[in-house]
Design a binder for these strands. Structure first.
Lengths: 238, 238
DNA sequence: ATACAATTTTAGGTATGACTAATTCTCGAA
DNA sequence: TTCGAGAATTAGTCATACCTAAAATTGTAT
């Protein structure tokens, strides 16, 4: 008896949803999603990934395509489910931040658990209360119900030169400690950064933090921070 | 290797939490909580209950006491955990109703899933937003963080005589269809009911629905409804 | 006292989803 | 072209939590 899966979500286990979500997230940044890459991000052993991948490829309809030793690709069905889970995750993050006063370093862990259990009704009500938000508290786009996703900046702070002025548009959500640290420095979404100095060889970057109107503040950011902060050039300052 | 459990919640599986919660709920209404009673309420087979009960009795410290063919009793630890789960459940129900506009027939199913995954921080924030509510949307008491529970009426509508005037204080949450039906009749918490007629042999009860100020309305309720509605005598009308 | 009916427990099996250990595959370098 | 390192897969285990079927226990009624 191979287990068969048909409709988007509601039928998948939590583990299966996590795999699909992670695959979609990794597809965006890696040209090939490999077993070991998945294993790292899901914090399981590669052998476990192989097993689950084979199951998801066997499902009917298949959630992903898979050839031994190659890598995985989501099918439209798999992608649809993954988008649904990511929508849940980011909507919940935004709700926790907006409606319940969560700090941006805490929302990810909570959303990780809630994303798998909320009903479509709750999803809809949360979205409605928030006015159908397009971004989560880290600047990641919230997929719409039909699966469309707003494009976001892929320009990391590592790519910015001294003298340039940028606005923070996205910060990776995977390191709560960094998020707390950045918040303490006043670095949040839409914060304006003026790059003061760039040490060579990807050394620390010194910048001035402050919106047009707020106080200025100088801080140094090492790689690890600059890698995880994405920006856009400030209008009229390009 | 017997698995051992120490601290309240966070360490228990969803299934274990459901067992403890159900045992506590049943202890309130049945003098003895038996395998088959649990099996019925948890919608599993009696053999499965035996297995889980034995595991919970073996945990260290034990969540419950158990003697073959007798019945189960929660230990203080088990009771503490059960109260925590019930607190989660009812807080979430109240939050869904108050903050997100859920109807009272939908909150139970959603809370059933959420109760097992929310963090203590989320529990606290929800309670704070609601102003530490004492009752859920069905009139069930929400245990406080220290485990105290407000007493509620145990007077079912079946015990009320013609001519008496009562206020609805609690309705069982286990039948969404009944809840929708009652809502349609205007029967909600605090609604005033004036009993018009009692058919003998637990036949249908006819009553007038309406708060002091609202329009009156006559309806008949069968057993199954009257069994599930709990009331208090209206002040000054006893 | 005993026997039956209902309840409960034991024994054995399934599915999920992780693990380790051992094997196999792929691909780049010599 | 062959070799070896690293990546991936297979094979075999384990724990959870359910199931069915068979055996055992309880209490009640004769």
């Amino acid at each position: 008896m191979t287990n068969s899966r048909i409709r988007a979500s509601e039928i998948l286990t939590r583990a299966e949803e996590d795999y699909l979500k992670t695959i979609l997230e990794l597809e965006e940044e890696h040209e090939s999603v490999t077993t070991s890459l998945l294993a790292t991000h899901l914090r399981v052993k590669p052998a476990s990934v192989t097993g689950m991948i084979q199951k998801l490829a066997r499902s009917r309809p298949p959630c992903l395509h898979y050839e031994s030793h190659r890598g995985v690709t989501l099918t439209p069905v798999g992608r649809q489910i993954a988008l649904e889970v990511i929508r849940h995750h980011r909507l919940i993050e935004q709700y926790l931040a907006q409606a319940l006063g969560y700090d941006w370093d805490k929302v990810d862990a909570e959303a990780e658990k809630l994303e798998h259990v909320i009903s479509e009704e709750l999803e809809d009500r949360i979205a409605a209360v928030l006015g159908d938000p397009i971004f989560d508290p880290h600047g990641d786009p919230i997929p719409s119900k039909d699966g469309s996703v707003t494009a976001t900046s892929r320009l990391p702070l590592t790519a910015i030169q001294a003298g340039q002025v940028v606005r923070v548009t996205r910060v990776r959500d995977d390191d709560p400690e960094l998020l707390r640290y950045l918040a303490g420095l006043g670095i949040r979404l839409q914060a304006r950064l003026t790059i003061v100095e760039r040490a060579p060889f990807e050394g620390p970057l010194t910048c001035q933090v402050g919106g047009a109107e707020t106080e200025a503040r100088i801080c140094a950011l090492g790689r690890g921070a600059t890698d995880r902060i994405f920006v856009e050039f400030d209008e009229g300052t390009g």
